[in-house]
Design a protein around this nucleic acid. Structure first.
Lengths: 190, 190
DNA sequence: TGCTTTATAGGTCATTTGACCTATTTTTGT
DNA sequence: ACAAAAATAGGTCAAATGACCTATAAAGCA
């Protein structure tokens, strides 16, 4: 890896850490430089302005996210690829989590707000979601005849559940059970 | 209404408008004062610091939200309270919308981010969701034997759909149809 | 009417911040 | 080894911001 790649990776990691800890208004050029252990001028050499830093951070974050998702899903494939129900159950256990237990979730919340006023950022986020959806459709298509339906149900639900799942009248277990039933019914019927 | 109530209501409306237009970092004491047409000092007389302004805005916003939801739902009750399917379909049409078409949705995104670092704000948001869920359970209980399941499915899904529904493999119509089927199946089976 | 409370106005101050600018120093390629 | 490019450092500046402070003006009330 070149110097440039190393330093920029360091910068972007620290940027994400600050975004998580202090929110978007906490991400100042000076804060990022300090946390990275470089000078402000040096940071500005790599990222001339704040907007470029944010855009780069966003792309870096999603690349990292994709890795995380892939490695998490590889856990499933080993054990439960045999039965459809087993696979779906594992998938649900993975997707339906409280935001408090999800390290990346705070970053998503920040991006959902930031993308409202930054079209380039918005496009990056939407591109991630489209990739994620397509990729999950492919994965699931071995287990159900209607992968698009399952994915269109699960992804939005998982995002919403991270936000306010703790305030629902049903416990997580009951919800996972419910979704599991819904999906197996979909799979049988079609 | 007393002077105080009038002025504070004006202030909070403008605060929300700025939050929507420019995000949380755009909400400065001076901006709010200007938009409201009062001086900075006068604003600080009503809200001594930024934190108090945010907390008050959040509560004001949710009060306003509850009114909106109630008036929207009163639209349904007149026509379609007769058939369960009709009611559910109308409810879905109302809940499953793209965030871009929902005026309040930007504010929610800001609050989801802000509440990560403000416990008081977080409690206010969670209280809103709990109220909303309880209230929707009550409303739906006339139409289904398992209102908790329906609500636990719909609220998180609606929030998630506003965020990334546009990136799903299925069109909105197909999704509304799918959810409608899921709910009527729930209602029949139990 | 006069007195007290409420409301409004103007100003100051230390800090923070992003964007520049101009040296040096280090690395790279020849 | 040396010229060119890449990287790092230090400093400046104007603008914005939250928090205060003090002085009027308006309203409410005795």
């Amino acid at each position: 890896m070149s110097k440039r790649e190393n330093v920029t990776a360091d910068i972007l990691k620290q940027t994400i850490a600050i975004l998580k800890a202090e929110g978007s208004s906490g991400v100042t050029m000076r804060q990022v430089a300090n946390k990275t252990g470089i000078t402000l001028s040096n940071l500005q050499y790599y990222f001339p302005d704040r907007t470029k830093l944010f855009q780069a951070m966003c792309e870096f974050f999603f690349r990292q996210c994709e890795k995380t998702i892939l490695s998490e899903l590889s856990t499933i494939n080993v054990n439960d690829r045999a039965s459809t129900n087993g696979f779906i159950k594992k998938l649900l256990e993975m997707l339906i989590v409280d935001g408090i237990n999800d390290y990346d979730h705070s970053i998503f919340r920040e991006l959902w707000a930031l993308m409202l006023r930054d079209k380039e950022l918005a496009e990056t986020v939407h591109r991630f979601y489209r990739n994620y959806a397509n990729w999950l459709v492919q994965l699931i298509s071995q287990f159900t005849p209607c992968p698009e339906k399952v994915v269109s149900l699960l992804i939005p639900y998982a995002d919403g559940y991270e936000i306010m799942g703790a305030d629902l009248p049903l416990e997580r277990n009951a919800i996972v059970e419910m979704l599991s039933e819904i999906i197996s019914q979909m799979t049988r019927k079609k």
